[in-house]
């Protein structure tokens, strides 16, 4: 029996269309902007319309279309693209220094290695990764802003453990926990103290609400954990 074995190095990929790195990053941030500053992985349909129409195309589709029509990009897109590239490079470098690179980060490193031109055939994988990176940047910036806001809170707990309290708070972040089917909310009150609680529904970041709850614990980082929280009404902070 004869085996035909073609080694990886022997395989030849025909060069495809060349896209400058600046164009690729500009197209990625433009696709993110066009899709309402979101990363759309699967096409979203407006099912209320008759017949249903496409509401949002995937970022990858929009991105590919923009690569073929670079005249639809403006200077702002190129500027934002460069900022996104710089942010991603800094983020990956930081993770590498801390030894926290994931498999995805390794793919991103391959994207960052392309400094001049992306080839539509040779860099197919890299071109598939770039459209989701503006969303990573947006999440990272929001996280940094939240952390910065939390660092500015006063080093003081709310009331005493077991006390029932009414607070006006501004929501800084709300993360869904699949394990508990609940939202973990971090917020600051009107006296700039940080509080943390679970809630059954999502609360919009930046929203201001009046809450009632019981102080469950005083955490080490001057955060007060609340239990049994209800929203009374919209706040006036």
């Amino acid at each position: 029996m004869q085996y035909y074995n073609m080694s990886k190095s022997a395989r030849k990929v025909t060069p495809g269309i060349q896209y400058s790195a600046a164009l690729v990053w500009a197209a990625a941030v433009a696709a993110h902007r066009i899709n309402g500053n979101r990363y759309i992985k699967v096409t979203e349909w407006d099912t209320q319309a008759e017949p249903p129409v496409v509401k949002y195309r995937t970022n990858r589709e929009v991105f590919t279309e923009l690569l073929a029509n670079p005249d639809r990009l403006d200077a702002g897109d190129y500027q934002a693209g460069q900022e996104c590239l710089d942010w991603v490079r800094g983020d990956v470098t930081f993770k590498a220094l801390r030894g926290q690179l994931t498999d995805f980060d390794l793919s991103v490193q391959k994207v960052l290695a392309v400094e001049e031109n992306f080839d539509s055939n040779i860099d197919k994988l890299a071109l598939a990764v770039v459209p989701c990176l503006p969303a990573s940047q947006a999440r990272g910036l929001a996280r940094a802003e939240t952390d910065s806001r939390l660092r500015q809170t006063v080093n003081e707990h709310v009331s005493t453990v077991g006390a029932k309290v009414n607070l006006e708070v501004e929501v800084l972040k709300a993360n869904y926990s699949q394990n508990y089917n609940t939202w973990f909310v971090t917020a600051v009150d009107s006296q700039n103290r940080s509080v943390f609680f679970s809630y059954r529904a999502p609360l919009a970041t930046g929203s201001k609400v009046n809450i009632r709850g019981t102080v469950k614990a005083h955490r080490d980082n001057a955060t007060t954990q609340l239990n049994r929280v209800t929203i009374i009404n919209k706040g006036t902070l």
């Binding site: 679970s198 059954r200 209800t230």
Partner: peptide
């Protein structure tokens, strides 16, 4: 009336 489960409201009404 509120039913609290693990500190989170499961029923309010």
């Amino acid at each position: 009336f509120i039913v609290w489960v693990g500190g989170v409201a499961d029923y309010e009404g």
